[in-house]
């Protein structure tokens, strides 16, 4: 064997080993980096949901132990807080508040689905005089702070005799005032293929027929997103409930929770407050885990809230 061949082979082996080592190093470093990332995300995640878990756990502790025990494993478990909390406010129980809130949300969803999809179909598919103008106006209302219409709406609803009822909250839903959903549905309908609608029109289907039989079924993912966020925002809304729902019999859950906090901010029944707070977040939790993919769509299109 020639010396040069031996040297070349030796060199080749050396280079090969070095490359292998480098690759191994990189692999190890990626593994280390990923492990550290996982660790960081998990620790921060635990830190972030700790308050919520603590709330759920504390709602099951006897009232006197909520203050003395920051831990997550209760030394004694009781459902007493749920019983005292459920009694509610001024003789009306949380059973009523939950029923009120659920019924109100159901009607709100129906209203938004009908009115927002109608407006969205017009903006996305129909040609009419003033379309560009009205679309700009609609997008403008998206950014309008609600307070600027608040007082006249209140006066208006008062002259209608609607104060103390759900109408000030529900009637606007039937008039597509939540421009976010109009926008979301416009975006979605525009992305649908035109061919099906054109074929239907050739077959003699009118615009109403196209809307009801083709656009609505095809837009169902966006409609689910609309229903979902309508529920969450109506359920969580407090300001409108505070303004308009003035009698305990018509209180919603979020309005009723406020009654646990006294006017100076003092809370007498912490156990009951935490128990009912826990119950109040259950619907949002169920929807979140059942309909996760619709959340991402809703967030990335409308992008507001929180």
């Amino acid at each position: 064997m020639k010396t040069s061949t031996v040297v070349r082979q030796h060199l080749a082996r050396l280079i090969g080993e070095r490359r292998q080592r480098l690759e191994n190093n990189m692999k190890t470093s990626t593994v280390i980096r990923h492990t550290l990332t996982h660790l960081f995300i998990i620790i921060l995640g635990v830190f972030m949901i700790y308050p919520i878990v603590w709330m759920v756990v504390s709602s099951l502790k006897p009232n006197n132990m909520i203050f003395s025990d920051p831990g997550l494993i209760p030394k004694a478990v009781t459902i007493e807080n749920y019983i005292t909390g459920w009694k509610g406010y001024a003789g009306t129980s949380f059973g009523t508040f939950f029923t009120n809130a659920l019924m109100m949300c159901a009607v709100a969803i129906v209203g938004n689905l009908i009115s927002c999809s109608m407006a969205a179909y017009a903006f996305a598919r129909l040609k009419f005089v003033g379309r560009g103008f009205w679309f700009t106006v609609m997008m403008g209302t998206l950014m309008l702070p609600g307070h600027v219409t608040l007082v006249p709406r209140y006066i208006l609803f008062n002259t209608f005799g609607w104060l103390g009822s759900y109408l000030p909250i529900l009637v606007p839903k039937f008039l597509a005032t939540d421009a976010f959903f109009v926008f979301l549905l416009v975006q979605f309908i525009r992305s649908l293929p035109l061919e099906v609608e054109e074929a239907a029109i050739i077959d003699g289907c009118g615009k109403v027929g196209v809307f009801l039989r083709i656009v609505i079924p095809l837009a169902s993912p966006a409609l689910v997103t609309t229903a979902l966020f309508t529920f969450l925002w109506t359920w969580d809304d407090f300001f409108n409930h505070l303004l308009y729902l003035t009698r305990p019999e018509v209180f919603t859950v979020s309005r009723a929770l406020r009654t646990f906090v006294g006017d100076a901010g003092a809370v007498t029944n912490w156990g009951g407050a935490l128990a009912m707070s826990t119950l109040s977040i259950v619907p949002a939790f169920i929807l979140f885990f059942a309909l996760q993919k619709y959340f991402v769509q809703g967030i990335t299109t409308t992008g507001i809230k929180g």
Partner: peptide, 27 residues
């Protein structure tokens, strides 16, 4: 064509004028 389109837009238009535009001027 325009009548059909504005029919679809009616709830939103009504909402805009009664619950947004008029209240803004009023306030």
């Amino acid at each position: 064509r325009n009548i059909v389109a504005y029919m679809f837009l009616t709830p939103w238009l009504l909402g805009f004028f009664v619950l947004t535009f008029y209240p803004m001027i009023y306030s």
